[in-house]
Computed example of a mutant assay.
Amino acid sequence: MLRIENLTKSFGPNVAVDAANVAVDKPAMIGIIGRSGAGKSTLLRMLNCLTDATSGRIVFEGQQISALKGADKRRWQSECAMIFQQFNLVPRLDVVSNVLHGTLNKRSTLATMFNLFPQEDIHRAIDILDRLGIAEHGPKRAEALSGGQQQRVAIARALMQDPKIILADEPIASLDPMNAQLVMQSLRAIHEEDGRMVVANLHTLDTARRYCDRVIGMRDGRIVFDGTPEQLTTGVARDIYGADDSFSEAATSTEIQTLDRPKTAQVVA
């Protein structure tokens, strides 16, 4: 389904991603972990064609994504939705309008300028917000919402694109533990219920283990681990992060409930 082959990105003498190879045979929820500067965000940006690769290939369902230009590139970006840590919403616009911006690639310039959307799209946006437990906030300005609510609005905007892949770049890095769980539950439910591939850069090991089917570890631009959450031991984590025996996962935990809670969970309204 997705193949990343010897993918490399250099910025002058600095190599951000170094000959990355990944093969994904079916939709999965994949977590990418590693220290800041390990190359996680650059890898996601190349998948979405926001950054061009220096060398190597990205192939999705037989199409070479890394070679796309112009309209074909924009079409791919509508099929490969991106969620950012900073939400990237329009603060003074209402929530429903922000969600509807997920359809801009399919709208005419005139409709975009005057914020005109078909009634069916408006109803669909509200349905998606309802699914994520925030439909009651639809008329509010985005800036009036909490960080966790804004991130769920960003997820709703991504779903409006009806994408084949959702990429999430540190989606919970700026959230408190409760909102972090709500966002991760939402992404997990989207994967399970819709059968969509979700790839998320994460900064906590317990989150990767709890919500992901597969975990990829990056260090200095290279993939140094690719396995199941069960294989992500503390020793493996030390190697990924280049840490010594003093490394403690507890310092980065987002867990706020008992450790025996099931791995998968449904969206909490």
Rank of each mutant, 00 (worst) to 15 (best):
E5M: 13
N6F: 08
T8W: 03
S10N: 15
F11P: 11
P13H: 10
D18M: 11
D18T: 10
A19P: 00
A20C: 04
N21M: 10
V24W: 02
M29F: 14
M29N: 07
G31L: 08
G31I: 11
I33G: 04
G34Q: 09
R35D: 10
K40V: 12
S41T: 14
L44I: 12
L44A: 06
L44T: 04
C49A: 09
D52F: 03
G56Y: 11
R57A: 14
I58G: 03
I58L: 02
F60M: 00
Q63P: 06
Q64K: 15
A71F: 00
R74Y: 08
Q77D: 05
S78V: 13
E79Q: 14
I83V: 15
F84Q: 09
Q86W: 12
N88L: 12
L89C: 10
D94K: 02
N98R: 09
L100Y: 01
H101A: 11
L104M: 11
K106A: 08
S108N: 03
T109S: 13
T109K: 15
M113A: 14
I122Y: 02
R124V: 07
L129W: 03
L129H: 01
D130K: 12
D130Y: 05
I134G: 01
A135R: 13
A135L: 03
E136I: 03
R141I: 00
R141S: 07
E143H: 05
E143T: 07
S146T: 06
Q149R: 04
Q150G: 08
R157E: 05
P163E: 14
K164E: 06
K164Q: 14
A168G: 05
D176S: 04
N179R: 06
A180I: 03
H191I: 00
E192K: 15
D194P: 13
G195E: 01
G195Q: 08
A200P: 05
L202V: 05
H203N: 11
R210V: 03
D213C: 08
D213M: 04
R219D: 09
G221I: 12
R222G: 03
G227R: 15
P229Q: 13
Q231H: 14
T233P: 00
A237F: 00
G242T: 13
A243C: 14
F247V: 12
E249L: 15
E249K: 08
E249S: 10
A250W: 04
A251F: 08
I256K: 07
Q257A: 10
D260G: 00
V267P: 02
